[in-house]
Simulated assay, not measured.
Amino acid sequence: MELKTFKDLIDWTRTLHHHMATCLAHCASEHQEERARILLDYLATHEAELEKLVTAFERESDVKALKTWIYDFLSHKPIETHRTCDLPYTHMGFDDICREIFDFHDQIIDLYQNLQDRAEIPEAREMVENLLNLERHEAMRIAREVGRMQDV
């Protein structure tokens, strides 16, 4: 997907969360370890919720901000994820899955932080700040839930 505008960025983010939700759910059904399966199910549900939140966010966003061009996106390193979902999480333990998911969300947060710092119009800056806050909040929520799972 070629990212030219902030609308493209939001569509791309939604697609990432959708892909991650689908992949995690698929891997959960195939994993041998019960604890990892529970984690993958939780993460899949959470990523599906994030996809819906991003969809709602786009509907409520300022049209001017959505149409704003992203000039320097290509200078940011691309987000790495298991794009083909060849069941990568079925071969990982609980801690490795956590590291992967936290890294995935950290990459999105870093991207939004970078774009917020470079946004040229106030509407775009505010929109990216809101996306950044959403991703940060959801990453903290995942961390809390994963912490609870580790305590069990």
Rank of each mutant, 00 (worst) to 15 (best):
K4F: 15
T5I: 08
T5S: 15
D8Y: 09
W12V: 00
T13G: 10
T15L: 15
T15S: 13
H18D: 12
T22W: 07
T22I: 09
L24N: 02
A25W: 09
A25K: 12
C27K: 00
C27Y: 02
A28G: 04
S29H: 11
H31C: 11
Q32A: 12
E33C: 00
E33K: 04
E33D: 15
R35T: 07
L39W: 01
L40Q: 03
L40W: 03
D41S: 12
Y42T: 00
L43V: 09
T45K: 14
T45L: 14
T45N: 12
L50Y: 03
E51G: 04
E51K: 11
E51P: 00
V54A: 10
T55E: 15
A56W: 05
R59L: 06
R59D: 07
S61E: 06
S61L: 07
D62A: 03
V63H: 05
K64G: 01
A65Y: 05
W69A: 15
I70V: 14
I70F: 01
Y71L: 13
L74M: 08
H76K: 09
I79A: 13
E80G: 00
E80M: 12
E80N: 05
H82E: 12
H82S: 06
R83D: 07
R83N: 05
C85S: 03
D86M: 08
P88L: 04
M92V: 02
M92G: 04
F94T: 01
D95L: 08
D96K: 11
C98I: 12
C98Y: 08
R99I: 11
R99P: 00
E100S: 12
E100C: 08
E100I: 01
D103Y: 07
D103I: 03
D103R: 13
F104N: 02
F104E: 01
Q107D: 11
L111K: 10
Q113Y: 10
Q113K: 05
N114V: 03
R118H: 11
R118E: 10
A119R: 05
E120H: 13
I121Y: 06
I121D: 15
P122D: 14
E123A: 15
A124H: 08
E126N: 09
M127Q: 03
M127D: 00
E129L: 09
N130R: 14
L131P: 00
R136E: 10
R136W: 05
E138T: 02
E138C: 03
M140V: 08
R144T: 02
E145D: 13
V146F: 15
R148V: 06
M149W: 05
D151T: 08
V152K: 13
